[in-house]
Structures are given as structure tokens and as C-alpha cells.
Computed example of a mutant assay.
Amino acid sequence: MEYFPLGDLQPYLSSPLPEKDVQQIAYQLLEGLSFMHDNGFVHRDLKPNLQNILVQSKKPDWWVKIGDFGISKRAEEGLTAFRTFGGTPGFIAPEILAQHGIFDDSDFKTKGEYTVAVDIWSLGEISFRALTGEQPFLIGSLIKYVRGASPFPIEMLQTYNVSEEGCNFLISLMAPMPGDRLAATNALSHIWVKSQNLSSTMVSAEIQRYVPGH
């Protein structure tokens, strides 16, 4: 396995990161999620600590990789939903919390099922915390948000001068209903991260390490 002497992402989130840093990190995580989701896999426990997001290099040129696939799962052929409870408090999508009775299943009409959109919610949580140093929701405010009784906490992002495009990006990742969230592939084309076509040179070099003849 690769050795990551810089550890995982969590220690670098002790204070808010510059917006351009979070753009780099979010883009790379989306690349990984897009590959996983296109092949039918859901990570289910995306978070910055416990070796889930590993740091190959830090600013000014971040390079992060998704790790810890211990509770990842692939949908059975012909199915697109998952049912087993999994994840870490603070990064779990609300439709999974419904399995713990925090929401009524009727709030989502999922019948205990969920999709790869749970990873997109987790990415939104990570990006929000990276930009602000704070979590977007406590349980009470999350319940109100999901039920349409309170708006997305955009003012927390604005306090840290996050751009309008950045605010819109996070809102699209953390839509209450899974079907309203951006798919990973589509999110890669969002204006906020599109410019981060992160050193395709680094990505190509990494791929070539595993291609015969290189």
C-alpha cells in the first residue's frame, strides 16, 4: 500500500482553509466518487479523519485520495439502492439517519433505501467544515432543514467570504432530498470546481505507474 507521511485531512481543518484550497480538495474527491459511483460502489463513510481522506501533498498544490473502504458496498446487479446502516455521526446523510428513527421514512419516501447520493452529502459536510471550521447542522436544525422549516445556513459561509458559486455548490451537494443532489460526474462540471482540473499531469503520472510499459 502507499505510504502517506502527511496523514489524513483532519489536522489541516483546525482552522478554515482558503476557498481555493477547498476547491482543489473537493474536485479531487469528486473524481474519486465519480469513478466509484459509475462502477456501482458507494463509500458510505466519507470523512476527513481516521484515514478516510489521505493527503499526498498539501498546499499550495493539494493532492488527496479517498481511503478506508471498510464499509463500502456495491449495489447488486439491477439495483441502485442500499439499505444497511453505515457512516459516522456528523457526516451521515439524512436519509440514512431515517433508519435510526431521527426522521420518518415518509420524509424521504425511501422505504429504508438510499443511493450513492449519501456520499455527495458527506462531501458537502466536509467542504462546509473546511471552509468555515464549523458544521452546518446540529440534529435539531437538520430536522428543520429537511422538512423545509429552515433554509440552508448560507450566512455561515458568507461570514467567511465564500463566493456565490461556492455557496451554490454546497447547496447543490446538500439538498435535503437525495434525488435533488448533484451526481458526482455532474458536480465535476460545476463552475466552482471546474477550473480545478487539478494537475492532470499528476493524475496521468499516477495512472501510468500502473499501466504496463510505463
Rank of each mutant, 00 (worst) to 15 (best):
F108E: 08
T185F: 08
G86Y: 11
K111N: 15
R209W: 11
L13E: 05
K144M: 07
Y145A: 00
N52F: 10
T115I: 03
G7H: 05
Q135F: 01
G86H: 04
P16R: 06
E165T: 13
L46P: 00
I120R: 05
L182D: 06
L9I: 07
S14Y: 09
S195H: 12
R83Q: 14
Q24M: 06
Q196K: 03
D68A: 10
Q28G: 05
G67C: 00
L17S: 00
G32H: 10
S199W: 06
A75Q: 10
T132E: 08
N186W: 04
S199V: 15
G148N: 00
E77G: 05
S127C: 14
L138H: 12
A184D: 07
F82V: 03
V116P: 03
L54M: 14
L138I: 14
E206L: 07
Q56E: 04
R44L: 09
A184P: 05
C167T: 01
T80K: 12
H43C: 05
D105H: 12
H43K: 02
G213M: 06
K194L: 05
P89R: 11
V118K: 04
V162G: 02
A187G: 06
K47H: 09
K109I: 02
T201Q: 09
G124V: 02
E95V: 14
E76L: 14
I171V: 08
M36Q: 01
M202S: 09
P212K: 06
A98C: 11
H37V: 12
D107T: 06
L157F: 08
M36A: 12
V22E: 09
E76R: 09
P89F: 15
A117C: 12
S199N: 13
E2M: 01
R181Y: 01
L50K: 15
P89K: 08
A183V: 11
D61F: 08
T80V: 15
S195V: 15
Q208I: 10
A175Y: 03
Q99S: 14
K65I: 01
V193D: 11
A98F: 11
L173D: 07
M1R: 12
P11M: 09
V55D: 00
D8G: 03
F41A: 08
C167M: 00
R83D: 13
G179Y: 15
I71F: 07
S172G: 03
G140Y: 03
F85W: 15
V162Q: 01
S199L: 14
K59H: 14
Q196A: 09
A93M: 08
N49G: 15
I25Y: 03
A175E: 13
G40M: 02
G133A: 02
P16Q: 13
K59Q: 12
V146Q: 08
Y27A: 05
Q99G: 12
G101E: 14
I71R: 08
E19I: 06
Q28R: 01
I96H: 01
H37K: 05
Q208G: 00
P212L: 13
A205N: 11
Q196H: 12
E113A: 13
Y114N: 10
D38H: 11
F85K: 15
Q135R: 11
S200T: 15
Q23R: 15
P153S: 00
L173K: 04
G67I: 10
E95G: 09
F69T: 01
G7K: 00
Q28C: 01
S57A: 12
L17K: 04
I207G: 00
D61P: 04
Q23C: 15
I96P: 02
V211P: 02
H214P: 05
D38P: 08
I120P: 09
P60W: 03
